[in-house]
Computed example of a mutant assay.
Amino acid sequence: MYDGAKVIKRVTLKAANLGRLTVTLPRLAKGTHKIRVLYSGNGYVARSASAYSTLIVK
């Protein structure tokens, strides 16, 4: 998981998750953050990336 170009969280997606995962973000500084999730892929599923979502921390 990225905030802009900075990695803010790494998690492992397992087959038991059935393609879904809930992630708790670390505490972020006040301001606007551009959050994006990347999946690095494996031998069966291609790499993919989400669009950026804007998160505003007050």
Rank of each mutant, 00 (worst) to 15 (best):
A51H: 04
L18A: 15
A15H: 04
G19L: 13
T54I: 14
D3H: 07
T32H: 06
L18H: 13
L38C: 03
V37Q: 01
G41A: 03
S40N: 13
V7D: 14
K30E: 04
S40E: 13
K34S: 13
V7F: 02
T24E: 11
L25A: 06
M1N: 09
N42Q: 09
Y2G: 00
A49K: 08
G4Q: 11
G31V: 10
L21H: 12
Y2V: 01
H33W: 06
Y52F: 11
S50Q: 02
L28E: 02
I35Q: 01
R47N: 08
V37R: 00
A51R: 09
T12E: 09
L28W: 04
I56Q: 15
K14W: 07
S53T: 13
V23C: 08
A29M: 08
G41E: 05
Y52A: 10
Y52L: 04
D3E: 12
L28T: 04
R27H: 01
G19P: 05
S40Q: 11
R10M: 11
H33F: 05
G31M: 10
G41L: 02
S48G: 10
A51P: 04
G19R: 11
R10C: 09
T12A: 10
R20L: 07
I8C: 03
T54C: 06
A46R: 12
G43C: 03
L13Y: 12
V45H: 04
L38M: 03
G31T: 08
T54Q: 14
L55V: 15
I35T: 03
A29T: 11
A51G: 07
L13G: 10
A15P: 14
L13P: 00
R36D: 01
L38N: 06
K34I: 03
M1Q: 06
Y44D: 03
R27F: 00
T22N: 09
V57G: 10
G31H: 05
T54F: 07
Y39P: 00
A16I: 09
